[in-house]
Amino acid sequence: MTRNKLYLLLISLVTAGYIWLVYSFKTVQDKPMLEGCFIKQISGVPCPTCGTTRSVIAIIKGNYLAALNINPIGYLVIIIMLIVPVWICIDWLLKKHTALTYYKKAEQFIKKPPVAILFILLLIVNWIWNIYKRL
């Protein structure tokens, strides 16, 4: 993974995220949101990250506890969406590659078996909770 490839990918992901967020923000009031999740559309069962958009919207509106109740992953996503554009812009202006280095370090960290098992377990617990909540 080269620097420019990663940054382009991250920027386009975050931009798509913001567009989706603005769209959801407008539609969420008057009708049920357009379902973005493939798994939920096909099987009717929510996936581990279903409800992230609703969670992020709740955080923006200030309902922090409700956001946690909908899906805790919303907090992770909003942190990434706030930090990534700033970080990449700084990197780009200063012609550095700190984000790429950090991305590779984080990748190595997540690949360690104890960490990976912990994350997978958390995700599965979140999934069961999602199904239980009928998101």
Binding site: M1, G36, F38, I39, L76, I80, L123
Partner: peptide
């Protein structure tokens, strides 16, 4: 694919996490 497991398997952990968090980039 929409859980990003394919990316995890081949070793692209970072992209896998990205795919997982975005529900496979909204499919």
């Amino acid at each position: 694919g929409s859980l990003g497991i394919d990316r995890f398997i081949i070793g692209d952990t970072g992209l896998g996490v990205g795919k997982l968090l975005t529900c496979g980039g909204l499919g």
